[in-house]
Computed example of a mutant assay.
Amino acid sequence: MKTKIYFDNEKFISGMTLKDVAESEQNNMALHSCENLEDILENRKKLATTLQCELGNFVCANQTHSANFYHVTLADKGCGADRLDTAIKDTDALYTYEPNTLLCSFTADCVPVIFFNEVNGLIGIVHSGWQGTVKEITPKLINHLTKAEKCNPCDFNVYIGAALSQEKFEVDEDVYVKFLNLGYADDFMYYNYKTDKYHIDNQQTVKRQCELAGIPADQITVDATCTYISEDGFSYRQDKKAGRHMSFIMKK
């Protein structure tokens, strides 16, 4: 199966599954958007084998485009791994200190944000569609970790995964105004007079949010792959029945 590994070192492993026509449902990883649940479970089991863990190590959330985050403990291992009804409720970001716990996020154009803290071993993952971005889910989580978990933002390394490109993220004025009101996204938007549409770079907006929250720019990596254009991408904007990528991170 096709999987892009963002990093794999002594402490952490992270990456993103890719669309793969050779696999069942093209390597779709989402139980909430599939034709056959058993095929999705088989795809997840294959990924688990690749990562040298078990399906029961997965932790998945019921993503609702919220700004809600959740502290995963050992008791949560396996939540959403093989059933939708056990997923963490109404949550779009997960973090944990626990080893051998695979935090998962599902996207098909939305921005996956993956991070780890080199000093204290905390890991996390965020699902930031445009709604999550304007709700500032990523900086809210970073600020929470700074205050509640005593993290130093300078200790975080962030990977922003493949998502819909600015070229393909075409919106009307109502969405443009929401980004404009953030006060720091102006550089990542332009207007197309021919189509009367605005184009927004959600990835770069999230990157700016991370920087404003105190994470050094040189510790933020952006995967510029467009999920709409790439043959390896699932794109909801292109196909409303599209499967989903799984972005993941695990502390070893």
Rank of each mutant, 00 (worst) to 15 (best):
A87L: 04
A148M: 13
L37H: 10
K240R: 08
V158H: 08
G132S: 11
K150P: 00
D196L: 05
M189N: 09
S247I: 03
K240T: 07
P139D: 10
Q131I: 12
R44V: 03
Q166W: 10
K241Y: 13
L103D: 09
F116I: 00
K168R: 14
R83A: 12
S128F: 06
K252Y: 14
I13V: 15
N181K: 13
K251R: 15
K240F: 00
D82Q: 06
F115E: 02
I220F: 06
Y159P: 01
G121V: 10
S230Y: 04
T49D: 11
A224R: 09
F115C: 07
E170P: 00
A81R: 04
L47N: 01
D186K: 15
I123P: 02
M1D: 04
F169T: 04
N117H: 12
Q204R: 14
A48M: 11
I200R: 11
N157E: 13
Y191V: 04
H71D: 09
T86N: 07
A87T: 05
Q63E: 13
M246Y: 03
I160S: 12
E170I: 08
N43W: 05
T138Q: 07
N36C: 14
F58Q: 01
K19W: 02
T225L: 14
Y198R: 02
Y190R: 13
F248V: 04
T96I: 07
T195W: 03
K194E: 15
L103W: 08
E136Y: 01
L55H: 00
Y70L: 05
N117K: 09
A30Y: 06
E38W: 03
Q204T: 00
A242Y: 06
V158D: 07
D155M: 08
T86D: 05
L31F: 12
F106D: 04
T225Y: 02
G161Y: 08
L37M: 07
M1F: 04
C34G: 08
Y95A: 07
C210E: 07
A81Y: 03
K252Q: 11
A213P: 02
G15D: 02
L41Y: 03
L74F: 04
E54K: 15
K150W: 03
A30T: 00
N152I: 07
R44F: 05
D174H: 11
A81H: 04
I249P: 07
G78D: 05
N181E: 14
T107Q: 12
L74G: 00
L31P: 05
D39A: 13
E42L: 14
F69N: 08
C104Y: 04
Q204A: 03
C210G: 10
K46H: 09
M29N: 00
E149C: 11
A93K: 10
D8M: 00
V158C: 12
I88M: 06
